[in-house]
């Protein structure tokens, strides 16, 4: 604790009242201090970093869409082209990169589905459907559609 000697009161009559040493200061007129947002503001808090990572999943989404179209194009070029494409995809470096892309996609899916109850407020027979039910239904749809895709593309 500081010494108990004399506590400045903040009154203008107080001899300890801060005297204006700043020439630009005018008494009784606000002279604001404005903080500038740093360019790396998204590192300030974990929540902001997560937010920017979530927003950057736009890039994996973009890549995967182009990849699917690319695969369609390769398929139109005949069996040899497809064979080369498959060999290329089996390269460990590309597989590792694609695992990373998949992780980005999953982050997009999980963050997107978790936020659905914020945007959707549904009522059935006058009763509000609880948030967990909305999230649950979306996860159910995700699992169902993923299962269907697996069944069609890899199940036979």
């Amino acid at each position: 604790m500081k010494s108990q000697a004399r506590i400045p009161t903040g009154r203008i009559s107080d001899p300890g009242y801060p005297r204006a040493s700043n020439p630009e200061y005018t008494r009784h007129h606000p002279r604001w201090y404005r903080r500038r947002m740093p360019i790396f503001w998204w590192l300030r808090k974990l929540a902001y970093t997560k937010f920017i990572l979530r927003e950057l999943t736009s890039q994996p989404v973009m890549y995967v869409t182009l990849f699917l179209l690319g695969k369609m194009w390769v398929l139109s070029r005949g069996p040899e082209a497809y064979e080369t494409f498959i060999q290329w995809l089996s390269h460990p470096a590309l597989l590792a990169f694609h695992a990373l892309v998949l992780a980005g996609l999953l982050f997009h899916t999980v963050t997107w589905l978790n936020l659905t109850p914020k945007a959707l407020v549904l009522r059935v027979a006058g009763r509000k459907i609880p948030g967990w039910a909305i999230v649950g239904a979306h996860y159910g749809a995700w699992l169902g559609l993923s299962g269907a895709i697996f069944w069609i593309l890899a199940g036979r």
């Binding site: 869409t65 892309v101 997009h108 589905l113 593309l153």
Partner: peptide, 18 residues
Amino acid sequence: TALLLPALFLVTAITAPM
């Protein structure tokens, strides 16, 4: 994309070439 892309990508880019 949230509902479809992970499964589509997993099958077309990882399990098929493997």
